Simulated scan of single mutants.
Amino acid sequence: MVTLKEKFAYPGPYRPIYRKWVKTARKAIWWLMLWELFGTVAGLVIFGISQPNLYRTDMWRIGWDNRLNSNPNIVLYAYANYESLPKIALVWTRTFTDFNVAISVLSLFMLLAKLTAWIMRVWFPILACFINLSMTTLYLVSLYGNIGPDFTDPRYPAPVAWYLRYGCEMAKPYKAYKSCQIAQSAVFISAYMSTIYLIGLGLSIHAMLPNKSIDCPRKSDDDDDDDNVSHHSSPDWEMGNMKSGGVVTSTPFTPFTPRTQAFNTLDHNSSVKPEAGRYA
């Protein structure tokens, strides 16, 4: 009688490291790398031209003039009054601009490394889980910073940057309309790449789950091995085994030359014995 434990037991060993991808995941990864390439190139362009300060201070000042975020001069006021520097919102800092450039370059490196590892068949799901989780975390931080929450001035709290709430019409009098659009594009790039890496993380986690088609040995593999063995066995070998009673014998191969034929003829003549009484 089959017990409940035996009925629901998982057959076959679970391989966490050298693990294969399922067929649907392999196709999805190819398409995902293509879309990842588009986002990486766009990120390199948008984040690259934003460095060092294409729109950061301008957007900050426009928002202050309309009382939609903190004052860009708070740092100067702190220096003038010998006060400690206030905590500036992440979206207005130079560090955040450099951070976006760094992760866009890192994304390009990871894409090239992933493509190489995929071709070399060493892009295992456990490695993909670690890489996708790391890149997802970095781009989620980038998305949070690009959204632009600014609570430095309690009088004018801004949960979202003003150019995401009201558009770029307020930037036209300042001749910063294109810069405002680039700032909006940075938010889209961060959200796009976060989605790409989240999908990749989901595929890698799904590949790490127990799967009978991957973990269990397939019968077709055993059949293929048997076919290969029978294919390489020759009829002469089998007939030789039958004649020798099942004992495997091996006959050394002697190369044939004209001198070999002459020596074989001499050996044959010397081995012939004279008949008894012929010369009596």
Rank of each mutant, 00 (worst) to 15 (best):
M242L: 15
S70A: 15
L90P: 00
A128Y: 01
A102I: 10
Y192W: 13
C168S: 14
T116L: 07
R61V: 06
A128D: 05
Y79S: 03
K212R: 12
S70C: 08
V45W: 12
I126C: 08
P217Y: 02
E275L: 15
I196T: 00
L143D: 12
G39S: 05
T137V: 15
F96M: 14
P210G: 03
L140G: 02
I17A: 02
N211A: 15
M33G: 02
S220Q: 09
K273N: 08
T254W: 03
A262C: 00
L198F: 14
L106R: 01
K5L: 10
L68Y: 05
M170V: 10
W35Q: 05
K5Y: 06
L68E: 15
K7R: 08
R218G: 06
K172L: 05
W31T: 13
V91M: 09
G63R: 00
F188G: 14
D222T: 14
Y174C: 02
M33W: 01
I17K: 03
W64A: 08
F99L: 04
K87M: 07
S220A: 13
D227L: 08
T97Q: 10
I196F: 01
D267M: 12
R218N: 11
N69R: 06
R15M: 08
Y166F: 13
T249I: 07
Q184S: 11
G240H: 06
Y279N: 14
L4R: 05
Y18K: 12
P13R: 02
P154T: 03
A276Q: 14
D153M: 07
D58R: 13
L209H: 08
S250D: 07
Y163R: 10
P149C: 02
L164M: 03
N241H: 07
F109A: 15
S250R: 03
F256R: 08
V247H: 02
V272C: 02
A262P: 01
L54S: 11
W35L: 15
I29K: 14
Y79G: 05
M33P: 02
L44E: 06
P235H: 08
W64G: 01
I131Q: 10
S194Q: 04
A42V: 11
N132T: 04
D236L: 09
S250Y: 10
W31V: 09
R259V: 07
M33V: 00
V105Y: 11
S213H: 04
K178L: 13
H231L: 10
V122T: 14
V2E: 12
N146I: 00
F38V: 15
F253K: 11
L44W: 03
L133M: 14
R259C: 03
P72R: 04
G277V: 06
L106A: 12
S84R: 11
V247M: 08
H268T: 08
K114Y: 03
Y79M: 05
T265L: 01
K7P: 02
A113R: 04
M110K: 02
P72D: 04
K273W: 11
Y77F: 14
A42M: 15
D223A: 14
T24Y: 06
V91C: 10
A113L: 13
H232I: 15
T260Q: 01
T251H: 13
A171Y: 12
P125A: 04
I182M: 09
D226E: 12
